[in-house]
């Protein structure tokens, strides 16, 4: 049960997008639709899970001063693996996400979890943490993507429910900032209400 807590923490209490405000670039750039957001979230989750596990294994043998470069190499290797696998099996998504797949390397969430969690916890705990944070990130991205898609394109998960044009601005760059901003307000409000109750 206590181990299970790490998983839940990543989704709600340490939600990478709404609470920690980390990894903003992919959050804003790839959420033009729910499917794209989810794809990015899952790709990041795969990297996070693998890198957390490997880093928690390697941490005891890595000298302190070179730990960051070592983590970066491990993360970059997994990112490349994810990149190649996506290119082979989901070429459509690979093309849409484009440059943001290699940029998972510099996503602060991944390096942040390696430094703050994985190097002082066991493999199992690190895996659960990676999974939890990954799910939290995926949920947040899907949610933002869904809102932007519904408002901007009048469709949900690529099913168009109206033939007219949506409010285009939500699919374009400014909409990303606005939707994330207002979703955060909503998240804060809900958290506040829970605290009071």
């Amino acid at each position: 049960m206590s181990k299970f807590k790490y998983l839940i923490d990543g989704i709600v209490k340490n939600n990478p997008t709404f609470v920690l405000v980390l990894g903003m670039c992919p959050t804003l750039a790839t959420t033009t639709s729910a499917v794209n957001g989810m794809g990015m979230g899952l790709a990041t989750m795969a990297v996070l899970l693998c890198s957390n596990m490997v880093i928690s294994l390697l941490a005891p043998v890595i000298p302190n001063k070179v730990r960051i470069p070592c983590y970066i190499v491990v993360i970059a290797a997994f990112v490349t693996v994810v990149q190649l696998v996506m290119q082979a099996y989901t070429p459509g998504l690979y093309e849409t996400l484009g440059i943001f797949i290699p940029l998972i390397v510099v996503n602060c969430i991944v390096l942040g979890r390696a430094e703050a969690f994985a190097n002082k916890h066991s493999v199992l705990e690190s895996a659960l943490d990676g999974l939890g944070i990954g799910i939290g990130f995926t949920l947040a991205l899907t949610c933002i993507g869904l809102v932007r898609e519904v408002l901007g394109n009048l469709s949900a998960f690529e099913n168009k429910f109206s033939s007219s044009d949506g409010m285009l601005v939500f699919v374009l760059a400014p909409g990303a900032f606005l939707v994330l901003g207002y979703l955060m307000v909503l998240f804060n409000k809900l958290k506040d209400r829970k605290k009071k109750a």
Partner: peptide, 12 residues
Amino acid sequence: AIKSSLRNMVLV
């Protein structure tokens, strides 16, 4: 983590 020395840093 173990103590850093030039040899183990380069090696790792």
